[in-house]
Structures are given as C-alpha cells and as structure tokens.
Design a binder for these strands. Structure first.
Lengths: 111, 111
DNA sequence: CGGGATCCTCGTTGATACTG
DNA sequence: CAGTATCAACGAGGATCCCG
C-alpha cells in the first residue's frame, strides 16, 4: 500500500474518486465488461433509467479518460460501438471485488 | 462474476455505488484503513478540506452501514474514536486495488 | 441512430454560528 | 472536543427538443 499524500486535495486517489464517484460511470463500465462491444442503444437498453444526456456525457468522459473505445462507422443510419480499452479492462478486477463484497454484505448494509 | 440484475435500478451493485459515490466516504475509509483508530479531530486533520458537517454526516452514514465503529467515551472534554469494522476492513482490498490501478494509470487519465 | 443544445430542478455540499 | 443547526450556493443530473 502506498502512502496517501498529505496534500490530500490534489492526490491521485482523490482524482480517481472524483472520476468514478458519479452516478453512472461504474455501471457503464460494468455493463461493457459483461457484454463486450455494445452500441449506444444497447447500453441505453441495459441501463434503462439513464437519460440520453448522461449516457452521452458519461461515455464521452470515459473515452477521454481512455477507459473505453468509441468506434464510429460512417453509415446511414450511424453506428457507434463502445468497448473497454486495455486500461479499462485492467480496472475491472477492482470493480469486481467491490461488487462481490457488495453482494456478500448487501443485507448488512441495507438491512 | 455474477450476472447483473436486469432490473438494474434496484440491484445490489447500484446500492453500493450509491453508498460510495459521494465525495468523502472512500477517503475516510482509506484514511482509517491507514491509520487505524482515529479521533474526530485527527480525521479532520488528515482531510483538511472537509467541513465539519460533511465529516459528521459521512461518519454517521458509514456507521449506519456498519463500515466503521464509533466509540464514545463519557469524558469531558468528550473523546470519540473511529475505526473500521470487520466488514469495513474486508472492503479495503477492493479500494486498494482501485488505488493501485489509479496510481498506475494516473498520467494516462490526467494527461 | 446517436447524439448535441437548452433549460430547469433538486440534492449535495459548504460556511458560519452555536452547544453539551 | 465533537459535534448540531441553519442557510446559501453550486453543479450534477433529468426532460425535452432538435439535428446530421
């Protein structure tokens, strides 16, 4: 384990928390991890209660952060496919651990 | 890996995301994980830019979720000690994985 | 189909003052 | 010391409409 920087506000841990602690990022990453390559509409179907705006903007940010690939085909109608990058895939074991922990302790936390 | 519930909005994964995706929870858990037992003021010193209100309310919620212990001594002035519960400790490896991943890919994401 | 642009709301967070 | 109470602000998020 590293040592957390005493100048907390600017440390890498904060950065990653800020990036991941929004409402949809982890859910999108988890969905892509499960299903592999997915189109915009498929993601929307898998996460029915996300708004178009949030789906778009979250995907955009994940792409900027190099966690997902965005592949666009010049067709009509357009087709866009999303998938995890190598970096994104390497992140998933950590997410899986959280998920497994959550499943294990779900009743404790909720009940 | 489990299968994410198609009724996404109510699945356990969502629940844990909702619990952890606030600004301070993971930071507090990580700080307690590093330092062991800590008093309110020590936590505040370790995370200088958190407000008293957010520190109090986040600690309260973490305690309700059984991730941390709160031990209060009937002294004057009062003394309160916080520490991770067993459940809380079991959660930390997942956090550590995220942190290590973050440290490894920090420049990719920020740059 | 896969978004972008707008507008709006509501919840989280922060600052400040106060207390047992 | 370890909080609570109150108020104010800000921004993430949602609804809707529009477009190539």
């Amino acid at each position: 384990m590293h040592t957390l920087d005493p100048l907390y506000p600017t440390c890498p841990i904060r950065n990653i928390i800020n990036r991941m602690s929004d409402k949809w990022s982890l859910l999108i990453l988890g969905t892509l991890n499960q299903n592999g390559i997915m189109r915009y509409k498929e993601l929307n179907a898998a996460i029915p209660d996300i708004s178009q705006k949030m789906l778009s903007s979250t995907l955009k940010r994940l792409e900027e952060d190099k966690l997902i690939n965005r592949k666009m085909y010049a067709e009509i109608p357009p087709r866009v496919e999303y998938s995890l990058t190598k970096t994104g895939k390497e992140f998933m074991p950590a997410v899986d651990m959280m998920v497994n922990w959550a499943l294990e302790h779900f009743d404790e936390i909720v009940g």
